[in-house]
Computed example of a mutant assay.
Amino acid sequence: MYTEQYNQIFDQCIADYHVHNSVHQPIHNPYEKTAFEHLLYLKNWIDTVQWHLEDIIRDPLIDPVKALEIKRWIDRSNQERTDVVEYIDGYFLDKHKDTVTTADAAINTESPAWAIDRLSILALKIYHMREEATRVDATPEHREACQRKLDILLEQRQDLGTAITQLLEDIAAGRKYMKVYKQMKMYNDPALNPVLYKGK
């Protein structure tokens, strides 16, 4: 199953991050830059750092200047996340460029990479919900409630993994085909965001 390997890489990345547990620590991607695994690790690292930035910015006592700095960081992170998703889809497009599709081949509602993006976020939810379900300073009620949520998240990961695997098998067999639309985000583009181009 493809996604068993993906989940292993995501879990490894999250564990690596939490060795120092700092948004400022540099990434040490253990995979060769040309390897598909490198993209998966990078994708999850971006998600993991952003997860913690989202926690930091919700501090009600955060300095407003610091909050703006974090918000700009999150904006950059979102763009990096989108870029890596498109690289992952590029990998699948190239891998299956010579696949002959069947006459009744269909397109999927989302590309493989955007489904993998959800799998990466799910790995983070599972890690942090497991922390809450085993937190020794929390009440038994809190731990029990979090354990129930964790069970659902684990079931969700199983279901999503099955769906991704089926999609990749269908693409490889020509039963489905890929069509990727680049994220045409306008707010980062000085030629498309009115606030930016009117301020010139």
Rank of each mutant, 00 (worst) to 15 (best):
N7M: 07
I14P: 06
I14N: 02
A15M: 05
H18N: 15
H20I: 07
N21D: 13
S22Q: 14
S22I: 03
I27T: 03
H28K: 08
P30V: 08
F36H: 15
F36A: 09
Y41A: 04
V49Q: 04
L53Y: 00
D55N: 08
R58I: 00
D59K: 04
V65Y: 01
W73F: 05
I74A: 01
S77T: 09
E80S: 15
D89I: 08
G90Q: 05
Y91K: 07
D94T: 10
K95I: 02
V100E: 13
A106Q: 14
I107E: 11
E110W: 11
P112S: 05
A115G: 03
S120C: 09
K125T: 01
K125Q: 11
I126D: 01
R130A: 13
T134P: 01
D137W: 12
H142A: 13
C146K: 07
Q147M: 09
K149T: 14
K149A: 05
L150Q: 00
I152M: 04
E155A: 03
G161D: 03
T162W: 11
T162S: 10
T165V: 05
Q166E: 12
L167P: 00
L168C: 10
E169V: 02
E169D: 12
I171D: 01
A172H: 08
G174A: 04
M178P: 03
K179V: 12
K179Y: 15
V180Q: 05
M184E: 12
M184D: 14
N188K: 05
P190D: 05
A191R: 14
